[in-house]
């Protein structure tokens, strides 16, 4: 895969229906999102719960359909595909989920779990040597083939889920909060594993997370999402060195500082950030209701992404801040 490119993605879900079940009101979850992932690259998609991160993942995998916008792999649209053509796309794009306790079938051994994608996509002979090699790639001994999910720790389960995704040699893996449920040291092991898998196979990754602190350790580029809109994107180094959007800054400030002498600054910030139950504003910038710098223009016009340095930012007041 040279690139996956999504342009102008829109996804709405009905929130109310009339008496014969036709949607009457809509909630826009993804609003005009562009996203590009190059071959061999890792793009981090960050934002709080409800920002639409997982919806984007489901759109890219064609688990749900877009209301507007195009998704192309190497220039070819995958929007209208079905049947064998869609199956061929799914062979190229795999997914790993957050919760390794619910993403593995508890009635299947590791052997059956790893063999299934190979069988579904009819990818040659399936023997223990091949399945054992898949386990070795994720740092587990081949003897694990006979284990059942309940015999495995969270980190081991997540390794199995990654091995299953890698089994059919996909070109892109969508990782949805894959380390959020893990201990810090296990988290570091899984991130190292994903990086080495990428170095070995050249697989591209979309890494979805609400934890900004781990992004520099896994991704090349970062896309910051808030209530369904991209507010900032750019190379990880640049965004972390100089976050431009007030939302990006708020996210970075909220990361706990592992130094008890640091003055414990995040408490002050915390009080100025309002509740998590934000409602998408009817007009203007999506972030303005929680923004300390919002002005009249922010309530009137939706800011568009404009180039700034090596990245892009959607903020009316970017030049003044």
């Amino acid at each position: 895969m040279k690139s996956l490119r999504a342009t102008g993605l829109v996804k709405r879900f009905p929130t109310a229906r009339d008496w014969i079940g036709r949607p009457r009101e809509w909630h826009t979850v993804i609003d005009d999102v562009d996203l590009e992932i190059a071959g061999g690259e890792t793009v981090a998609l960050v934002g709080e719960s409800g920002s639409g991160k997982s919806t984007i993942a489901r759109l890219l995998l064609r688990l749900i359909d877009t209301d507007r916008g195009v998704i192309e792999i190497d220039g070819e649209s995958i929007n209208g595909l079905h049947g064998a053509a869609l199956r061929a796309v799914r062979r190229r794009v795999q997914m790993v989920f957050q919760d390794p306790y619910s993403s593995l079938d508890p009635t299947r051994s590791v052997r059956e779990t790893l063999a299934e994608p190979l069988r579904v996509h009819r990818l040659g002979p399936i023997d223990d040597r091949r399945l054992g090699a898949l386990l070795m790639d994720v740092g587990l001994p081949a003897s694990f083939l006979d284990r059942m999910p309940q015999e495995l720790s969270g980190g081991q389960r997540q390794r199995i889920a990654i091995a299953r995704a890698l089994a059919i040699e996909p070109e892109l893996i969508v990782c949805d909060e894959v380390v959020s449920a893990l201990d810090v040291s296990t988290r570091a092991q899984i991130i190292a594993l994903l990086r080495s898998a990428q170095a070995r196979t050249g697989v591209a990754m979309l890494f979805i997370t609400h934890d900004l602190a781990i992004v520099p350790h896994i991704a090349h580029r970062v896309v910051v999402l808030y209530l369904g809109r991209v507010v900032e994107e750019g190379p990880v180094d640049a965004v972390f060195a100089q976050p431009a959007h007030p939302y990006t800054r708020a996210l970075l400030d909220a990361v706990p500082v592992p130094d008890p002498r640091a003055g414990r600054r995040s408490w002050q910030l915390a009080t100025s950030t309002t509740a998590a139950e934000s409602v998408r504003p009817a007009s203007g910038c999506v972030w303005r209701t929680r923004c300390a710098f919002a002005e009249a223009v922010c309530t009137q016009q939706i800011p568009t992404l404009v180039a700034r340095g090596t990245g892009r930012v959607a903020c009316h007041r970017i030049d003044e801040l």
Binding site: E48, A254, P256, W267, A270
Partner: peptide, 10 residues
Amino acid sequence: DVTVQAQVLA
């Protein structure tokens, strides 16, 4: 979320 976490800790 990290932001909500900061609020709850505060």
